[in-house]
Structures are given as C-alpha cells and as structure tokens.
C-alpha cells in the first residue's frame, strides 16, 4: 500500500511478487465461530469496503485479473474477491522497456495498450491518460483538473507502441507461440514420457505458484484460538507434497505427478474449461524466480505443443 511520501518507481517493468494479492491476499480470515454450551455463534468477517486505486499495472497483470475473474467470479462467487475487485479502479501503464523474459504477446496481450479501467503511457516525463470503462470515466472526472488536453498524444503513444513491438521482436522468446490444437490433446500429453526427464530436477518448492499472477489455489484451515475457532484461507501450492492430502490418502505422491499437474492445468485443463484461454499471461516472473530455471516455455517446447510463428 502506498503511503504519503514513499517514492513511486515506474521504471521496473515487472514486480517480483505478482499483484494478485491485492484481490486475493495470502492470508485472510473468513469467519469465526464460538461455542457457548450447546449454542454455536457465527461471526462473519465483514467484506473489505475501502475503495482503492491500483496505478501502474502492466498489461500482463491486468490480463491475469481477467483470468482470476473467470475463477472467483463464476458461480459460486467469492465475495471477498468480488468486493475487493469492484472497489478497485485499475490503471494500466504501458510497458516501454520489456524484459527478455517477457512473452505476453504469445497470449494475445498487447504490452503497450493495457485494457484496464484506464490506460496510461509514460513517454519521457509526461503521462498520457485514456479512460476506458465507466469506473475509469468516474475517476478521470474526479481528478480532471490534473489533465490538459494532449494534442497529438495518439501519435506519440502509437510511436511508443511500435517501438515496444520492435524491441520484443529482438527478444529470445519472440517466436514462442502455443498451438491450441496441440494443447487440446489431453490424453497424449498426459502419457508423454518427457515428464520424467523434466520433473527430475524440480525441487517442488512452490515459488512458481506463489509468484505467478494467475495461480489461485488456496487452503482453508480452522485455527483454534482460545475458546474461539477462526477459519482462515491461505495460498497453497500444487507443488507441495501435502497439497492433495485427502481423507482417502494422497493421489499425487510423486513429484512427477505434481509437476505434470501444474503444467497441464496451465496449458490444457484451464483452456478446456475456459474457452481456450491459457492460464498464463507470459509475465516471465517464473523464468526469473525458479531456483532451477524450469518454466512453461521449456516445458511447452519439450512437449512439442508450440508452433512457429
């Protein structure tokens, strides 16, 4: 959260941790209940109501919120997520200097033209602003005295967009693209013996799931606090050994099974349930943060589900 006086850094292209925790925080108390004799009293935690503004959100993170919406806002709706999501106005900031780990275009995301409530472009010292949605309009109206009409703004913005495209083409991951048709062959991918080789060096730590903007799995636990019990939700990672601990045991005991599940969920299962939308936005955080440099690009190439563009 920004407090008065802290410097704003707009230079870094991609933040270490993803922004999902502004809508889906790592720990959150859902409700608390208490037993008095035979009566059970329930205390629902009230939904977060404070209005927030997220400024400087990159295009890939904005796209990840759309993916998260597909999960949390579908029936049954997650009220906590919904409350935070609606009370927040997203202001996208176009990328001007993409990193070599960026491959957002693979998923049809335009880095230079974010699709949030309002879009902004930073060219030199001046900031170009364009509201997109009603929320964006309301915010712009609320602070309209900050703006001056930018004539010829579109031209400068378009110029920056072209520049970004050119830069991205030079990046090593420029040519990386997924073939939807290949990714839909669920059984064949599942049986592929490439998993053995790939998963061998994975540590099963969980960094990739926690830094990834689209990972949304969580664990619910009851925490006994003196005579009250609090039910709280916290992030969980499919890579952890006890992720699928169930009453009947644990269906995924080997690291290979967990590794395969993670990538198939991103490339195969999620698109199958969500009209072909991959559960990845190409932000590249995983490429930077994985201790043993395993990532979706390497896996996709190994599985042979890419197509050359």
């Amino acid at each position: 959260m920004w407090q008065e006086g802290t410097a704003v850094d707009l230079k870094t292209t991609i933040t270490a941790k993803s922004l999902k925790n502004i809508f889906f925080p790592q720990i959150e108390n859902l409700l608390a209940f208490e037993r008095q004799g035979q009566k059970l009293s329930l205390e629902q935690k009230q939904l977060p109501a404070e209005k927030t503004i997220a400024f400087g959100v990159r295009a890939c993170d904005i796209a990840s919120f759309n993916l998260l919406d597909k999960v949390f806002l579908k029936q049954p709706v997650d009220h906590f997520y919904q409350a935070r999501r609606e009370n927040c106005t997203l202001i996208g900031l176009a990328c001007s200097e993409p990193e070599e780990t960026c491959f957002c275009r693979t998923f049809g995301i335009e880095p230079a033209s974010p699709t949030a409530d309002a879009a902004a472009w930073l060219v030199g010292d001046d900031l170009f602003w364009q509201p997109k949605t009603t929320k964006g309009e309301e915010l712009t109206a609320a602070i309209k005295d900050l703006f001056t009409e930018a004539e010829g703004g579109d031209k400068i913005v378009a110029e920056q967009q072209a520049q970004v495209q050119a830069l991205l083409d030079k990046m090593p991951l420029a040519g990386f693209a997924l073939s939807d048709e290949e990714c839909s062959k669920q059984a064949e991918i599942f049986e592929s013996e490439v998993w053995e080789e790939l998963s061998k060096t994975c540590l099963g730590c969980g960094t990739c799931t926690y830094v990834c903007p689209t990972c949304h799995c969580y664990d619910i636990r009851d925490y006994e606090v003196n005579d009250k019990v609090e039910r709280y939700r916290c992030w969980d990672s499919c890579m952890f050994s006890d992720f699928t601990n169930m009453a009947g045991g644990n269906p995924r005991t080997t690291r290979l099974a967990r590794f395969r599940q993670r990538y198939m969920h991103k490339l195969v299962y999620f698109p199958a349930n969500n009209e072909g939308a991959y559960a990845c936005v190409g932000c590249g955080r995983r490429l930077q943060k994985c201790p043993v440099s395993l990532n979706i690009v390497k896996v996709a190439k190994a599985l042979g589900v890419t197509k050359n563009v």
């Binding site: 941790k17 790592q26 540590l203 730590c205 969980g206 960094t207 926690y210 830094v211």
Partner: peptide, 10 residues
C-alpha cells in the same frame, strides 16, 4: 517472506 519454501528445498 511468502513461505514458498524455496530456501528449504534448495
């Protein structure tokens, strides 16, 4: 710390 356990597993 986000408890990703990378430090422990490496």
């Amino acid at each position: 710390c986000i408890r990703c356990n990378a430090c422990r597993d490496i």
